[in-house]
Design a protein around this nucleic acid. Structure first.
Length: 284
DNA sequence: AAAGGCACCAACCGCACGTGC
DNA sequence: TGCACGTGCGGTTGGTGCCTT
């Protein structure tokens, strides 16, 4: 049995929103706040489905939205974040205050893609276009035959160890993948002196330039829950798993799985001008 | 001036995830 | 454990305005 539709399609308006509808929605949210989108249209007297109301609010009516053109710094930040996160528009939007995922997605498809092409960079892989053509793909089982993957120039994409983000993965898996990426980088830094192999050599497409637009983290939060995700083997437990989401400034975003409980329960003690973070019982 | 092409962007759609029961 | 529901996300579509011919 399929899911019930989110609304009665026969009795809902579609298409562009009128000024009156906007005002109704704004007034209702001002009075009652966001939430329970399904019941909102009826309560607000709107002939729209809840999803439509949510989208209209988030993408257009929210008061904290920044309108207007993207500036050069935002362009570069989007490009860098996309190289790290792929088409995770909501994650990228979380790093750009006042911008929505939809706005960034549209901007990417209309402006940045072209910009990267003009620079000779493949926007999907962030590698030079000629390397997309010349690189010899390693054979790799392609479990993800999802039609969502619209990348037809897939040679470099298949090679891309880092950003072959399976659309079926859960958010936690994705976050843990990001953390693994982070640790690959850290471990390579540790072992580079002995092996002489750099991260860039092992993962040429790995762009972990984490300095991009990072917020100043005075007390970097080491997420215990992220450590749990990260540490498959017990001997790694002594390693500090730095939550990449927190490092990227996503600690307030949904992507950060360590967000609420970790902050609420963590005990912080200054020691040698450093802070130690203790796992809460919930984390174990 | 009209027609066609193109770019832009708001909105829609389907699916996946998280949560409560 | 499984189901239903609410919500969020990413891909796609369609309307509109501008530009070119």
């Amino acid at each position: 049995m399929g899911r019930s539709p989110c609304c009665e399609k026969e009795h809902t308006n579609k298409g562009a929103w009128t000024k009156e509808e906007d005002e109704r929605l704004i007034n209702y949210i001002k009075l009652h706040g966001e939430g329970c989108w399904r019941s909102l249209p009826k309560a607000a007297g709107l002939l729209r489905c809840g999803k439509s109301c949510r989208l209209r609010w988030i993408n257009y009516l929210r008061p904290d939205l920044k309108r207007g053109n993207f500036i050069e710094e935002e362009d570069e930040l989007i490009i860098n974040l996309h190289s790290l996160l792929g088409n995770k528009w909501s994650l990228i939007a979380a790093r750009l205050p006042g911008r929505t995922d939809n706005e960034i997605k549209n901007y990417w498809n209309t402006h940045i893609k072209r910009k990267l092409y003009s620079r000779g960079i493949d926007p999907q892989t962030h590698r030079p276009l000629n390397s997309v053509i010349t690189s010899t793909p390693k054979k790799r089982s392609n479990n993800n035959s999802s039609s969502n993957n619209t990348n037809t120039t897939s040679t470099a994409a298949n090679d891309n160890v880092v950003f072959q983000i399976n659309m079926q993965k859960t958010k936690k898996q994705e976050v843990s993948e990001l953390i693994v990426m982070s640790n690959i980088n850290n471990e390579n830094e540790d072992s580079n002196s002995s092996s002489g192999v750099t991260t860039e050599e092992v993962y040429p497409e790995l762009n972990l330039e984490l300095s991009i637009g990072l917020p100043a983290q005075q007390n970097p939060i080491i997420s215990s829950s992220c450590i749990k995700v990260n540490d498959e083997s017990s001997n790694q437990k002594k390693k500090t798993g730095v939550c990449l989401c927190c490092n990227l400034g996503f600690q307030n975003s949904q992507a950060c799985s360590c967000k609420p409980r970790a902050i609420a329960t963590r005990i912080i003690t200054p020691q040698n001008n450093l802070y130690r973070y203790y796992s809460s019982p919930l984390d174990s």
